[in-house]
Every structure is written in C-alpha cells, then in structure tokens.
Write a protein that binds this DNA or RNA. Structure first.
Lengths: 236, 236
DNA sequence: TGTATGGTGTGGTCAGACCACATGACCGAA
DNA sequence: TTCGGTCATGTGGTCTGACCACACCATACA
C-alpha cells in the first residue's frame, strides 16, 4: 500500500526517483510498462501517465509507441529540454525577468570562456563548425538559432553539463524576445557581420589563453546585442 | 480542431503558454476548470490533467480541491520547486555530475556576493535572520537546511530571481550527498562552528563592500566543506 | 530463401464514473 | 435579526475500461 496522503502520481514519481538513485535504472534503460507500474504501485494507469509526462518534459525519459526494445519509456537524461521549458514558461508567466536572464547569461558565459581560456587543451571543433555555418546565407531566425547553439557549444566544451543545460534554458527562454528585437536593428546584415566577427574574436582569445580578454569580449558581445535590439531597457 | 500530429497534452500546454505570453492569464489568476479546457480544446480530460501536472511540477501552477475562488489551478510562478525537481532528478539519473553542480554553484555564488558587495545598499535582513537561526541547537539536517536557505537568501538579496532559482535547484539536487557527507566530518560541532564563522565573514565582507574578499571567502567556504566531507573526489 | 501476414505488447487517448473537499446559499431556530 | 447547521454545487483526484496506432516478431506460405 503506497502512502495515503501523497497524491498517486507522486508515488509513481518517488518510485522512479528511488530507482534512479539506487541505480536500478539509468540512462538507456527502459521503464516498466505503464500497466505494470500501475498494478505494482496500486494506482491507476492515468496516475502513472501523469508522472511519466512530468519526467518526459523534464527531459528524463522519452516515450515511444510500438513494441520491441526501442518502444516504451526509456531513460535519456537530457536536461536541456526540461530547462528550456521551465525557463521559457516562467519568463512567459512573468516569474522571470528578461533582465535577470540576461544578467545570468553574462555571469555564466564569462565563467565558461574563462575556464576555456585557462584550460590547457580544449576541443573547439563544435564551436568552430557553428561559426562556419553562420557564414552561409541565412534568415534571421536561422542565424540566431545557430548563434544560440554556438554559445551552448562553448559551455559544453568547458565540460560542465550543468552550465550547458542552464545556458540552453536561458537562451531558449528569451528566444522570442531576441528574435523580436532583431526587428529594431537598423541593418541586420551589418549586425550579423559584427556578431560573426565578435564570435571569432572570442574563440581567438580562448585559443590564445587570454582569459581577461575573452571575458571582456563576451561581455561586450552580449550587452552589445541586447542594447542594439532595444531589449536592455526593461523594467527594474 | 487542434493539431493532429502533436500529442493532445502538448496542445493543452501550448494553449496555456500562449495565454501566458499574451498576458491573458498571469500570477494569481485561475485557469479554466479541467473539464472546460477539455471540451474547449477537443481533448479528453486526462490529457488536460497531464499538462496541468507538468505545469504543477514546473512550479507554474498550484492546484486546490474544493470550490470557491481559491480552488482550481492557480498560476503561481514559483520556479524554485521546478528547478529543484529538475536538477535533483538529473543528478539522480547521472545526467548531472555532482562536481559540475558544485562548480556551477561556485560561479554563481561568487557572482552574487560580488554584486552584493558592489551594490550601494542591499537588504541583508533575511540572511542575517538565518545566521541567527543557525546558532540554535540543531540537528545536522536542520543546520544544513538553514545553511541552504542562507545561500539562497543571498542570491535573492541580489535581486536576480533567475540566479536564486538556479541556486535553489543546485543546492537541492545535492542535498542528499551533502547530508551523507556530513558523516565523514570528524567533529560536526567544530564544522558547524566553522561554517557559522565563515558565513559571518562573508556577510561582513559584503557589508564593507569588499568584493574580492567576499569572493575569496565564499569560494573557500564552499570548496572547504566539500573537501572535508569527501565530496570533492568524484569521478571526472 | 524470401516475403506476407497476423499476433502481441506497447504507448496515446477518451468516456464515464465515483470520491473528497471547500464553498456558499438556504433554511430554521433562538 | 442573527446565528447555526445543512445541503447543493463545483472543483480537482482517481480509477476502470475501452479502443486505436504502431512497431516488432514469429509463423506460414510462395
């Protein structure tokens, strides 16, 4: 008999979290079928499904219809999606201020480039590829999407998955505002050119292990765009 | 007719997110009853419930049984709970490394005390009260809970809700490890005394607007505890 | 040997039913 | 009039049962 005071779906969540902590299940493993979990825990299948839905949005599992080894609920542990959903909704609801999001990005991004510049040998292949991709002919939305991926790839290169996930969430949460802000830029072509040059400057500073310079560049890069796209003057 | 390719609960989520972005609903407002949403969107009530469950875990809404103005699903926009659940589960699943969590904490915490020390006038009432509360006779778990609250209160005092929420999540995600690590400390009474003194030192450095000193102290404070509680030597 | 074909197990969804609970209106007694 | 109890109502919480779509896999057949 599960607990009586907690709600049924929380029992399911607790059970799965317990299995994760105990190591009984981990990334790549399949969760028991919904019907099995329901009977095992003495709850209805709908309650199981509510818990699985939560895990899916948090990026913990992925579900797949059909049968066979690839079907069912599989633990994937991809935090970025959950972080993005969480932050996007809280910005939408007004619980998060866009200015705070940008401020947090500044802090994390500065820490990332500092770590990269001070590290002996880092793999900047992914950021370099994204830089190259940004040279092509792109719409504003496409350009900004690769831009976001570039910054996330820097965080990923630093080896800190937590910062990378948070960065993904931060960027995704203000994606709409960033895109809308692009309309305020007098000449997008010029702006894109400037952003490309700034990106290259940041990568160069990292490669030459000049941490202070990398910090300055990344700071100016971010504040510069937000200022020009009229996103800075928000409340607060 | 909602979309056909998306899953039903995603339609519900999209509808509510749209209302949030449009400003139709905001913190304090009530969502339509589940049955109403179901018929309006042409989905079953269970699909609506799956979406609401997600929003609840993310800290966007709170649900209440009964009738009257306080019943139903109410937008609350409290990101901390969602952040805590997200990070806790991802640490449990192995997607987040404890070392990365600690590293991220170091970055954010340093940024927080820097901002506080450089700010003209900050309200440190809440941190001070928690400091006082930490002087009482407490179990290890109680002490650590107030300790966590102290650090979050610093972030809150800096005025950045995003950092405060992330900090809550980071701390909560390793709560179990921190508590387990306390067992490795030779004399907890001594450790508690040291932590108290370090906290007071950090607050003093902030009050005297000595940002570099505050940074150093907070860095040593965190790394010191993790080293002594044998949490530092993890994989990576 | 290769190819249909159908069984089977899985998630996705819905409809309906019932419960617990908080509110508020109504009604009756003091 | 006022106070107190009682009941209708509306809400979320849960379960059951049913059906569909889909992917796999074993079997039978050509």
């Amino acid at each position: 008999m599960p607990s009586t005071d907690r709600r049924a779906w929380q029992d399911v969540l607790a059970r799965i979290e317990g299995d994760l902590v105990a190591g009984t299940i981990g990334p790549g493993d399949r969760l028991p079928p919904e019907r099995t979990l329901a009977t095992e825990l003495g709850v209805g299948r709908s309650s199981v499904r509510e818990a699985l839905r939560v895990l899916e949005v948090l990026g913990l599992i992925r579900t797949q219809t059909g049968s066979g080894p690839r079907a069912g609920a599989i633990v994937v542990a991809r935090p970025s999606g959950g972080m993005a959903a969480l932050m996007r909704l809280h910005v939408a609801a007004g619980g998060f201020d866009v200015a705070d999001v940008v401020a947090t990005r500044l802090v994390l991004e500065a820490a990332v480039v500092t770590a990269l510049a001070e590290s002996r040998a880092v793999d900047l292949t992914a950021p370099a590829e994204l830089l190259a991709a940004m040279d092509g002919e792109l719409t504003t939305a496409e350009f900004l999407a690769i831009d976001a991926a570039f910054h996330v790839s820097l965080a990923a290169a630093s080896g800190n998955d937590v910062i990378a996930a948070v960065m993904t969430g931060l960027r995704s949460s203000v994606e709409g505002y960033v895109l809308a802000g692009a309309a305020f830029v007098p000449s997008w072509e010029l702006m894109a050119q400037r952003l490309r040059a700034e990106h290259r400057g940041i990568v160069a500073a990292i490669a030459s292990h000049d941490a202070p310079r990398a910090r300055t560049l990344v700071h100016d890069h971010i504040t510069g765009y937000y200022a020009d796209s009229k996103l800075a003057p928000l409340e607060r």
